[in-house]
Simulated scan of single mutants.
Amino acid sequence: MHETRRAALAGLIVASFACASAAAQEIKLTLADQNSPTGWGPSHALQPWVKQVEEATKGRVKIEVYPSQTLIKGVDRWKGIRGGIADIGWCVQGYWPEQTPLSDVMSLPFLPISSAEKGSEALWKLYEKFPSMKKEYSEIEPLLLYTSSPNLLVSKRPVKTLDEFKGLKWRVLGGPPTEMAKALGAVPTLIPMPDVYQSLDKGVVDGAAAPWEAVQAFRLYEVARNYTMAPFYVAYFSLCANKQKFQSLPQDVRSAIMSVSGLAGAKFWGRNFFDTAEQGVIERAKAGNYELNRYQVPPDELTRWTKIAGEPIWNEWVKKMEGKGHANAREVLNTALDLLKN
């Protein structure tokens, strides 16, 4: 009798140790990034977020980052995460415009986006509010969505009024930004961001649309001194996980990861990846003795630009989305405007 009890007790002890061991077992996740680990965004957002995840999970989760497209090329990231090549990936949603068409509302020109933190907050709240937007990400598990800060006009000559856009050779993205440039009277030019430095230096373009993070990363302050500050447009990004991998994690681990992701994570990434980069540019320019002429477009002039090159493109976007079966496109746009204004 006593031996039976001792055997049962020993069994319980072994089982409890096994459970404790399993609970404490380290979970390793891979993360595919396309940026240099020394860049502003990875240094100020990605790497701190990885530490936040480790702290939130009490050390149970360790994330191994593969930077500079070493694991998955940027244009293949969505497919690679969906297929399980990496557990988590940093995605530029602009690579796949047909994948998340309603989310593209955030990239329309002249939305009242004051900062990347505010834009990121609005994007995540749109995602939470509209099932049709959630459906756009159904193939993967979005941990957070965030936007860039507004693209500035980085130019060799000052641009302060509508008339000064006329004939300006302006590097912008395709789609609505190109239509925006045309409406303002500029000549849109499609050039990859890594080529912008030389294009400005050689006079191939007169100006380029870029957020402060890109100005810092590509040292554009060395070849252009004028910065027209207006919410021309933003890009948006996702940090997404393989759906099957994420769902296989223990519930408490998933909850811990989302405690530093979701809305809080979106705002953190927007602020630290993009908003803080302006100060980085100021410090670098000062250290190199480069002149920075920052010009904040006055409200009256900004309203004029928005009426000409913003609102007509918004309405065209709604018409296009409705034509593709997205009956709530107008509601999505109006909700985005309300979130950004409040």
Rank of each mutant, 00 (worst) to 15 (best):
Q251S: 14
Y95S: 10
F237E: 13
A266K: 04
P176E: 10
N272S: 08
A15W: 06
G119N: 10
K319W: 01
N272H: 13
K307N: 15
P299I: 06
W96T: 08
A327Y: 02
L249M: 14
P194R: 15
M106R: 06
G80H: 05
T30Y: 02
P176D: 12
I191W: 07
K182R: 15
V215G: 00
F246D: 10
N226R: 05
V53H: 00
D87Y: 03
L340H: 02
L292D: 00
A264G: 01
A22S: 08
D252W: 09
P211A: 14
E311S: 09
A186M: 11
Y290Q: 13
P312W: 09
K118N: 09
G185Q: 07
L46A: 04
A235K: 06
R82P: 01
F237M: 13
F273N: 13
A22Y: 01
G265V: 03
M321A: 03
Y137G: 00
N293L: 11
W96R: 15
K307R: 15
A287E: 15
H326A: 07
K58Q: 13
K182H: 02
E322C: 07
K135M: 13
K134I: 08
G207N: 09
D87M: 03
F165H: 09
L190D: 07
G280A: 07
E136M: 07
V281A: 03
G323W: 03
P299Q: 04
V253F: 02
G94A: 10
G39S: 15
W49P: 01
A183F: 01
M321G: 00
K51T: 02
I81A: 11
Q99V: 08
C19G: 10
E117R: 15
L102R: 11
I113W: 01
A86V: 02
G41L: 10
G74T: 08
L144E: 02
G310Q: 12
M1I: 14
Y95L: 11
I113K: 12
P131H: 07
W269N: 03
F165I: 12
W40M: 08
T189N: 12
N342F: 11
N334C: 04
P112V: 05
I81P: 02
A327Q: 13
Y197H: 15
D300H: 13
V50Q: 02
Q47I: 07
S21N: 08
V75A: 10
K202H: 04
L173I: 12
K286A: 04
E64D: 12
W314K: 14
I313F: 05
Y233N: 14
K320M: 08
F165A: 09
R6D: 04
L152R: 04
S16K: 12
A181M: 07
L71N: 04
K129Y: 00
I257N: 11
Q216H: 13
L292M: 09
A181Q: 10
K51V: 04
Y227D: 02
K79H: 05
K51E: 04
L12T: 11
D338P: 01
G119A: 06
K118V: 02
T189G: 01
D76P: 03
G207H: 03
S255L: 10
E331Q: 12
L108H: 05
P194V: 05
T228M: 09
T335R: 15
F273Y: 15
W212A: 09
L263T: 03
S103G: 14
T38A: 15
